[in-house]
Design a protein around this nucleic acid. Structure first.
Lengths: 327, 327
DNA sequence: TTGAAAGCGATACCAC
DNA sequence: GTGGTATCGCTTTCAA
């Protein structure tokens, strides 16, 4: 590969001049500029990004840390992040943390050593203190870490109220909730939304809530428990779509028809939700838009551009499909 | 951040010595080693990976280029790749090419400038010639580019025969095929497998094949076409799971019960296939294993370690679930 | 408007 | 065993 020296030699100028035309900064005569550009073409010269990084202490790459890219929420997010990063001239290296602190810290260390310019994280193990120590911009997605850290989330509580309220409208009399893990803030917000909607109904008690761990297998069992305990349940609000799909499966096993006997609503709006039968009614997050916004925000922070806002709380939208019925 | 110079000063030695203990190569006295290590701890020194890259011309990062991470086949693959890369000390930067040549070439250029050590690609636009010019190891996944390029794929043809043969065993008399795009080799192999199984049946003609473009929406329409043309169809082999899910939906629309009236089988074994009702019978690829193998292979190639094999053709496995029935 | 030279932070060769 | 220093390829003062 040709280097800047080769180009300089070809063009009969110094490397400084080549650098100037490369970065179009500083004065350079039109003719010499032309000469340099010809040399660049002739040699098919591409500047070495690593050398550049070393000097500038930036790498034009950002890190994306998610618990698990296989979790259907994240591919779409990752896609949006990568799309806009690419558009803005950044590459993205992605990391699966499995919500494991050691793994996360290991990644952080490596990424810092590589001069990544910023980080997008979906994590509940990361603390504000650690983020500060990184000394690079960090944006949190899907979860709130701390008020000091720029964040992109959705209105989980009001979304949960929408979901539960919709079930009520549909005529459901006993609505159960499949909850996400207690250590994930958005799960707790969704649970709170559910409680605000039905927590003071005369029939309600906490045995209408079961932990489904945001995952399908657990949700199947949890739903079976729920249905065994309370056969009168006629509506389930699941804290995410994956659990809602589990609930549909469990309902079938249990001999309940969805939506006739049991209405089910999810949360997230992942594309999986359209693959089920019946198709899942859900509270949809604008996942792609959120990915676009985080990436945009992060790059602005990196490039020290003005940002009008460092906290984005997106509205969610009820998407009515087949798993809930009008009575 | 502390540099190697700071450490040298702290320890009262030269940077050369620090470098030696860092890389544990060359002779270094036990005591001075201890001194250096103490200095490293005290300063919380982490070597600068960029500087190292510049000198060594490698970056300990690999590129992963896929058409679209949102396509449910790829997250699991990406996960496997990232897992094993990480285990082996590499980061992975991921790129979505949308099967677009310009985008692909743009990525290649950038990645080269950043000294990525190797590439894993799922592409049908990349040519052997271009790969050669890159001058870094490249491994092809899911698609065959060229015999010279290390490749990890599955036995598409025999998998397709398994699928079609299974439908025959189940008692299907008229089996249609939803095919993937013509420019994707694995799609053509799967079609060939189907043809070998039923192409010479007296009833067969090419109107039993419809292009579903590996995508759900197209597959729904294609299935509707198929069913309209040939109401006698009682089995469908879809070239991938996403299309099979589309076929299930179309069947419902058309008023056919799956599997009673119509058996449907897919290909891939993505986790989506377990979310449907009925759950999808499919020909499963060992996606995670394939990802592990490609990453392993690529790293071996990068590190110029001996590889016994540069072509892996995995067996596929028929996973019988609910969308096909025993008559 | 251009060039020489000092970094950026490591590695590795060559002396001693 | 250890240190001095050229080198990796680029950017950016500082002079001319």
């Amino acid at each position: 590969m040709a280097t800047i020296k080769d180009v300089a030699k070809q063009a009969g100028v110094s490397v400084a001049t080549v650098s100037r035309v490369l970065n179009s900064n500083g004065y350079v005569n039109e003719d010499t500029k032309k000469k340099v550009e010809e040399a660049i073409d002739r040699l098919n010269y591409k500047p070495n990004a690593v050398a550049r990084s070393l000097y500038k202490k930036t790498s034009k790459t950002i890190g994306l840390m998610v618990p698990d890219i296989v979790n259907p929420f994240f591919p779409e997010l990752a896609r949006a992040v990568e799309d806009t990063a690419h558009k803005l001239g950044y590459n993205v290296v992605f990391c699966n943390t499995d919500e494991n602190v050691e793994k996360e810290e290991h990644y952080l260390e490596i990424l810092l050593q590589k001069y990544v310019d910023g980080l997008i994280v979906a994590s509940n193990t990361l603390t504000a203190e650690k983020v500060r120590q990184l000394n690079i911009p960090v944006v949190s997605i899907d979860r709130k870490i701390n008020a000091d850290i720029p964040t992109v989330v959705v209105k989980n509580k009001s979304g949960a109220r929408k979901a539960t309220g919709f079930l009520l409208e549909m005529g459901c009399k006993r609505i159960a909730h499949l909850s996400g893990p207690e250590h994930i803030d958005n799960a707790m917000e969704r649970r709170t939304g559910y409680l605000e909607e039905v927590g003071s109904e005369p029939w309600f008690d906490s045995s209408y809530i079961e932990d489904g761990n945001y995952d399908m297998k657990t949700a199947i069992n949890a739903t079976l428990q729920l249905l065994g305990r309370h056969p009168e349940i006629d509506g389930i609000f699941a804290g995410n779509d994956v659990m809602a799909i589990g609930a549909i499966k469990a309902a079938h096993k249990f001999g309940k028809k969805v939506p006739e006997d049991l209405a089910i609503i999810g949360f997230d709006g992942i594309s999986l939700a359209e693959a089920t039968t019946p198709e899942l009614t859900t509270v949809g997050q604008p996942i792609y838009d959120m990915g676009t916004i985080v990436a945009d925000l992060l790059v602005k922070l990196i490039e020290k551009k003005a940002v009008e806002n460092t906290f984005f709380e997106f509205d969610v939208e009820l998407i009515e499909r087949e798993s809930t019925r009008k009575v």
